[in-house]
Computed example of a mutant assay.
Amino acid sequence: MGMDGLPEQECLICRKHRGEGPLAGPVVWEDEYLVVTHRPVGEDGTAVLGYLFVESRRHVPCLADLTDSEAAAAGRTVRRVAQALRAELATDFVFSAIAGMSQAHFHQHVFARHAGTPAEYGWMAGDQWPGAPRGTTAAVADLCGRLRPYLGKDSAQD
């Protein structure tokens, strides 16, 4: 049973980490603490490129429940994800948010705001802009491959 009272086998993010369920998307990188995934393609066969999730491997509901080691790994990884997105995509910004409202398993959204996104699309809504770069499964996999080297860096190289 998870700390939120939900059996871990029923948690959508735990299922995602096993490659199951509706949230399963391409894994960009993982270690003993975290799993970084790209948003999966939708019903139209595409996904907005550069929308990632940094998730705790261990089933915990929120940021306050992470261990110090998990929290340090999350901070370091989110920074590296932001650097990777900025380097590999034409971005105006890279944003991040922790909400935890829909799934009681720690996950941090990290997403590119693509260059040229009109101001009327708020900071959390850039993926709703019809002009946002979208890609098929192959394009998402290609981007994940380009992002992966930024995340696998040894901390001594920072």
Rank of each mutant, 00 (worst) to 15 (best):
A82G: 13
E8D: 15
A71V: 00
G75R: 00
R146I: 03
A119V: 01
R80Q: 13
L143K: 04
G5W: 03
Q128G: 07
E55N: 12
D44K: 10
P61R: 09
D44A: 15
Q108I: 05
R76A: 14
T136F: 09
A104T: 10
A90K: 03
I13L: 15
G2W: 05
V81H: 07
S69Y: 03
V94F: 03
D154K: 02
L12I: 08
D65W: 01
R146D: 07
D142A: 15
A104P: 10
G50L: 11
M101V: 11
G25H: 06
V41P: 04
L63Y: 10
T91E: 08
L52E: 10
H38P: 03
V28P: 03
A72T: 01
S102V: 14
G19V: 02
A64W: 01
A97V: 13
A47I: 06
H17V: 09
P40G: 14
M101W: 08
V81D: 09
R113T: 02
V110E: 12
C62F: 08
V48G: 06
P26W: 02
R134Y: 06
V140D: 02
Y33M: 09
R86H: 06
A115E: 14
W29G: 04
H105S: 09
D158E: 13
A115W: 00
R39K: 13
R18P: 05
S69H: 03
P118W: 00
L85E: 05
S155G: 05
F53V: 12
R18I: 02
G45Y: 07
L52C: 15
Y51N: 15
